[in-house]
C-alpha cells in the first residue's frame, strides 16, 4: 500500500524562509524598542544629574565592576541559595498537590479556596505574621520565596491535569487503562506543558520573593540594595538591580526554551496551521 500524502515536515523550504523573515522582523523590533529605551534613559540621566539617575556609561564603567570586586557577587550567590531551596520546596509541594486537585473534585473544593485567598491577599501583609512564626533567619526567606511562587505551579498543574483527564477519558477508558497507567502514560505527560508554564511563572515571581524577604530582614541582596540606594551609590545600585533582572530573565528563558520544545509536540494545530498558511 503506498503512502498517499506528503508529511507536513517534508514541505518546508518556504516555511523556513518565512520563519527566518519573521525572526528578522522580531529582532529589528526588539533592537528599536530597547535602543529607544536606552537613549531615553541616557537623555533623562544627563538632564536630571547623577543624584537622581546615573548615566548608562556610569553604570557600565563604575557600577558593574564594583558589583564583581566588592563582594556583592558573593552576597548575591547567598541570595540565590535561598531562592533555590525555596523553589525546590515550592515545586515539590505545589506540583503533586496540583495533580491531586486536578484529579479529585474533593481536593479541589478543599484546597483551592485557600490557595485563591492567599493569591488575592497582598503577600507583604502576611510577612509580619510569618516572622512571628518562623523568625527572621534563612527559614523566613525560604518561606517567603515559597509563598510568592506557590500559586502558579499549583494552579497550572491542576488545570493541565483536569483538562487532560477529560480530553483523554474516552481513549484511556477504551484501552482499559488502570488508574495509575492512565496517570503515568497519558495524563501526566499530557499535562507537562502546563506544569512547565507554572514552573516558569513561579520562577519569575520567586526572584521577587527573594528580594522582598531580604528587604524585610535587611540581609543579602535586598539589604545591599537598600544601603546603596540610601548612600546614593546609584551606578552600583542599578548594576546590582540589572544583575537580578538578568538572572531572572535567564532562568525564565531557560525554562521557556524547554517549554517551546514541549509545546512544539503538543500543539498539533499550531504547526499544521503554520505549514498550511
Amino acid at each position: 500500500m503506498s503512502t498517499v500524502e506528503a508529511p507536513v515536515g517534508a514541505a518546508p523550504l518556504r516555511l523556513r524562509a518565512f520563519r527566518q523573515r519573521r525572526r528578522g522582523v522580531v529582532w529589528t523590533r526588539r533592537v528599536l524598542l530597547y535602543g529607544a529605551i536606552l537613549v531615553a534613559w541616557q537623555l533623562l540621566a544627563l538632564k536630571e544629574g547623577p543624584f537622581f539617575l546615573p548615566t548608562l556609561d556610569a553604570i557600565a564603567f563604575d557600577g558593574v565592576p564594583a558589583v564583581f570586586t566588592q563582594g556583592y557577587a558573593g552576597t548575591f550567590a547567598e541570595s540565590l541559595q535561598q531562592l533555590a531551596i525555596g523553589l525546590v520546596i515550592c515545586y515539590a509541594v505545589a506540583i503533586p498537590l496540583g495533580m491531586l486537585i486536578g484529579l479529585s473534585r474533593i481536593a479541589d473544593r478543599f484546597v483551592m479556596p485557600f490557595a485563591d485567598a492567599f493569591f488575592i491577599t497582598p503577600t507583604a501583609a502576611l510577612l509580619p505574621l510569618v516572622i512571628l512564626v518562623v523568625g527572621t533567619g534563612l527559614s523566613f526567606r525560604v518561606f517567603v520565596v515559597v509563598l510568592f511562587a506557590f500559586y502558579y505551579p499549583l494552579v497550572n498543574t491542576a488545570a493541565g491535569v483536569r483538562y487532560n483527564v477529560a480530553k483523554y477519558r474516552e481513549l484511556s477508558d477504551s484501552l482499559c487503562l488502570s488508574g495509575p497507567a492512565k496517570l503515568w502514560k497519558i495524563v501526566l505527560p499530557a499535562s507537562a506543558p502546563y506544569v512547565v508554564v507554572g514552573v516558569r511563572l513561579g520562577l519569575g515571581i520567586a526572584v521577587q520573593g527573594m528580594i522582598v524577604a531580604e528587604l524585610w530582614v535587611a540581609v543579602g541582596t535586598g539589604s545591599l540594595l537598600i544601603n546603596l540606594g540610601a548612600q546614593r551609590r546609584l551606578p552600583e545600585f542599578f548594576a546590582l538591580t540589572g544583575m537580578v533582572i538578568v538572572l531572572s530573565l535567564a532562568l525564565t528563558e531557560l525554562v521557556r526554551a524547554y517549554e517551546r520544545r514541549l509545546f512544539a509536540r503538543h500543539q498539533l494545530e499550531v504547526r499544521l496551521d503554520a505549514t498550511q498558511g
Binding site: T3, V4, E5, A6, R265, R271
Partner: peptide, 10 residues
C-alpha cells in the same frame, strides 16, 4: 515521526 509531523489523513 511525531503526530504533529503528519497530515490529518496520516
Amino acid at each position: 515521526h511525531f503526530p504533529a509531523q503528519l497530515s490529518g489523513g496520516m
